[in-house]
Amino acid sequence: MKPKVAFFDFTSCEGCQLTVVDSLQTHLDLLDVVEIVQFREAMSERGEDYAIAFVEGSITREADEARLKQIREQAALVVALGACAHLGGVNAIKNLAPLDDVRQYVYGDKHKWYETYAARPISAVVKVDAFIPGCPIDREEFIRVVKAVLLGKKPPIPDYPVCVECKLKENNCMFHKGGFCLGPVTRAGCGAICPTYSDGCEGCRGAIPNPNQDAMKDVLKEHGLTVDEVMARMTMFNAFDASQLGK
């Protein structure tokens, strides 16, 4: 029997789910090995008997927690899909300002009608078995992770930084072209796509284990960024900090 798979979304742009739809176009054989029972973005049927849940989006309201916990209870495996679910992502930029200010800025005088709290990755609420990083996810990596999960193997998500893939592509370094880049502290797997197109890495795949953040700040400053600009770049996708939750 094919394992049953479902897709869910919380606070996000749905870009990662779109990438999944996209990868199905080039990897139709995926449907030979799994059965998709729920995927709001792509189908109207809704099965609740899934074994693998792919969850997109960060958690930004208390009310989201119950739904996520229910998904966790049903699914044998929960996979965070994309930067919002994996890291908190861009949604967590709001955590850097007082919550009331943020609500007023977005909802004006109606701000009391809208519930919100500090944005967080799904791992801050439930146990997560695997993650697929990126904003959006890389479609080849999505396929690789699905294959690994089906074979009962550890998903092949690199632990090394973007610089490795960047150098293997023979790119000239962004810092040598007058640019800025978070490649030395950011998890590879995207094929260094941003520096390959002469755009510095913004860290959407999150930090590698043991990142040298101090050296990263120094290098960015040496190349001309102000302290504020350094912080802005380093918190674009990575503003979530568990200590902010007061847990």
């Binding site: 030979d32 090995v33 294959k147 090394y160 610089c163 490795v164 040298n212 050296a215």
Partner: peptide, 28 residues
């Protein structure tokens, strides 16, 4: 100071370490 970024190895003409990986089809 080091990032552990590996750039120094990748660009070196005398480095020759490689990793071996498998790419398996969907049906395994």
């Amino acid at each position: 100071r080091c990032f552990g970024c590996g750039s120094c190895n990748i660009v070196c003409p005398t480095c020759y370490c490689f990793d071996v990986r498998d790419e398996v089809s969907m049906d395994g």
